[in-house]
Design a binder for these strands. Structure first.
Length: 565
RNA sequence: UGGGAUGUAGCUCAACUGGCAGAGCGACGGACUCUGACUCCGUAGGUUCGAGGUUCGACCCCUCGCAUCCCAGCCA
């Protein structure tokens, strides 16, 4: 872990922990947990929570953080998700050591505690169906009514609950409920459901051992307490659940009472963060799976070329508060640029090739030029690039008639070829329909590593030898949605209407410098003057590698251009 | 007068707990440059949601408003 990661900025939760430590609460321990439900892939919002929980554990002496799967709803969960979550947490750089848990590990204990609640008259078996229960619950402004089954005897409740477990009753026919207060202004306290019946689902951990499953509100506090968690950090929507969290622990025989603290979820502009919507994007094939590089999932960002360091840096920078927020994409992008600018080797790649013939350069000649892999870091070494009579440059780097401040190649003008010579464009060759097909140029042999005599050449463009470069596929990604808050816009029927049809552009004929042919799967480069790219091994086919654009370089020219339009 | 929470720069957060309102990102301008990148320098941007009150002094405490978010699953 780098220095920067160790110095994660403080926040109100760390201040609470500091105070707790000072007061000697929780026996001076700090123990957090990250409790995902394995019903989808992790996204950057989860990364925020992971960095918070594991980060706190790292920063406090003796601090620990558990990974615990909150697997109480087998209907939506599966092992694929369990595995992807473990992979993503590790990839982000965190380690749960031997503290991998499942809420389902505690099913037996949870059952025993339920028996205790029943015995002390604090829970009862209710025969109301879901619709009836809704009616009895009341509304936001009116109190609810007590269930007619609320005053069953302890003995009858015990018997019924045992038979629920034994599988004697159908799904939905009965539930176990806490006996709290049907008149509470907090709906969560109106005799909440503790257990429901679910036949015929095979739980990914417990198989068919159970046909009753505990609810989150009942399971979570007990799981936390059994693991000796000191600070149970969760998102804002659970704030109303805290009284129930506390109620459960106060009404069973357990000697640990973790402190639940809520913080606000992450919202990122131009994307969606709800698992339901991400699942929909995957299921209905709007994207190419959970790890589609346009997805805000950890797997998607990884495939896009983001580094764990950059995501951690992002999580540090956005901070932790209780205020609703919507973070600009630029924040994330600046983090990956900062990381990759420092660590990614440079290479040259021509995305939209335009052929150039250097007429005063001998046909058979091949010159080996030296190019540094990083302009500021000599330790990253250098590589050989081959210069030849025919090369490719990017179509965008040539204009017949250029605006004032244009610094690239124009007819009759000069430009520096990166790491090579200065060339001048003498003639433009066009096809019958007027499309530029080729440029005829001449080079100045005195300009290798030296400025030309008596004149200033301002522009520098990148290039690849036509005879030595190789063709690759390059995928240019843009934001998945063209609305800053696609799921908050009430004026459309569905967030899908804001999907950006241009979110993926595939270039089939990019020409890359030969050194890129040996790139390792997943390795990242800066294609000079274009952006950061990473080799997508999964998408590559024999002989045709695929590179994903992680992010463009900052581009003040493009900004200026846009402004003038 | 249903309950719970949150309002500080365009965005995300600070402000040593009552003592000159700052940073990162973004924007704008300039310098440098064999990447229109990086780096460096500079500029703009604030009625701290509003109105009262307490105080020598309020982003912070009190009162009353306003706005936004969450809650009526046998989801988490």
């Amino acid at each position: 872990m780098s220095e920067q990661d160790k110095n994660a900025p403080s926040n109100f939760i760390r201040q609470i922990i500091d105070a707790d430590l000072k007061e000697g609460r929780h026996e001076g321990r700090v123990h957090t947990r990250f409790p995902p439900e394995p019903n989808g892939y992790l996204h950057v919002g989860h990364a925020k929570s992971i960095c918070l929980n594991f980060g706190i554990a790292q920063d406090y002496p003796g601090g620990l953080c558990n990974l615990r799967f909150d697997d109480t709803n087998p209907h939506k969960e599966n092992v694929e998700y369990v595995n992807s979550i473990m992979q993503d947490v590790s990839w982000l750089g965190f380690d749960w050591d031997d503290r991998l848990f499942y809420a389902s590990n505690y099913f037996e204990q949870l059952y025993e505690f339920a028996v205790e609640l029943i015995t002390s008259g604090k829970a009862f078996v209710c025969d109301l169906d879901a619709g009836q229960m809704r009616e009895y619950r009341g509304t936001l402004t009116e109190p609810g009514r007590e269930s007619p089954y609320r005053n069953r005897s302890v003995a009858e409740n015990l018997d019924l609950f045992r038979r629920m477990r034994a599988g004697e009753f159908e799904d939905g026919s009965r539930v176990l409920r806490a006996k709290i207060d049907m008149a509470s202004p907090n709906l969560n306290m109106r005799d909440p459901t503790l257990y429901r019946i679910r036949h015929g689902v095979i739980h990914h951990q417990t198989g068919e051992a159970w046909c009753i499953y505990p609810m989150y509100d009942y399971t979570h506090p007990i799981s936390d307490a059994l693991e000796g968690i000191t600070h149970s950090l969760c998102t804002l929507e659970f704030e109303d659940h805290r009284p129930l969290y506390d109620w459960v622990l106060e009404n069973i025989s357990i000697d640990c009472h973790p402190q639940q603290i809520e913080f606000s979820r992450l919202n990122l502009q131009y994307t969606v963060m709800s698992k339901r919507k991400l699942t929909q994007l995957v299921d209905e094939k709007y994207v190419d799976g959970w790890d589609d590089p346009r997805m805000p999932t950890v797997a998607g960002l990884r495939r896009r070329g983001y580094t764990p360091e950059s995501i951690r840096m992002f999580c540090d920078r956005i901070g932790i508060t209780k205020a609703d927020n919507s973070v600009e994409m630029e924040m994330l992008e600046s983090c990956i640029r900062e990381d990759l600018d420092q660590h990614a080797p440079r290479a040259m790649a021509v995305l939209n090739p335009l052929k150039i013939v250097i007429e005063n350069y001998p046909e058979e000649r091949v010159e080996e030029l030296n190019a540094p892999n990083h302009p500021k870091d000599e330790m990253m070494g250098s590589r050989i690039i081959k210069f030849t009579r025919e090369i490719f440059i990017d179509r965008d780097d040539f204009l017949e008639q250029a605006p004032n401040k244009y610094k690239r190649l124009v007819t009759g003008g000069e430009v520096r070829l990166r790491n090579a010579y200065v060339i001048r464009c003498d003639r433009v060759i066009k096809s019958e329909n007027g499309e530029i097909t080729e440029l005829r140029c001449s080079y100045d042999p005195t300009t290798l590593g030296a400025n030309p005599e008596g004149r200033k050449v301002r522009g520098v463009i990148h290039w690849v030898s036509a005879s030595h470069g190789f063709t690759a596929k390059v995928r240019l990604y843009d934001r998945l949605f063209n609305h800053p808050a696609p799921d908050a816009d009430k004026s459309v029927a569905s967030f899908l209407e804001h999907l950006n049809p241009q979110s993926l552009q595939t270039l089939e004929t990019a020409v890359l410098e030969p050194s890129l042919a040996n790139a390792a799967p997943g390795s990242r480069f800066q294609f000079e003057r274009e952006g950061y790219f990473c080799l997508d091994a999964a998408a590559s086919e024999e002989g045709v590698p695929v590179f994903n654009r992680t992010v463009t370089l900052r581009d003040s020219w493009a900004r200026m251009d846009q402004k003038n339009q």
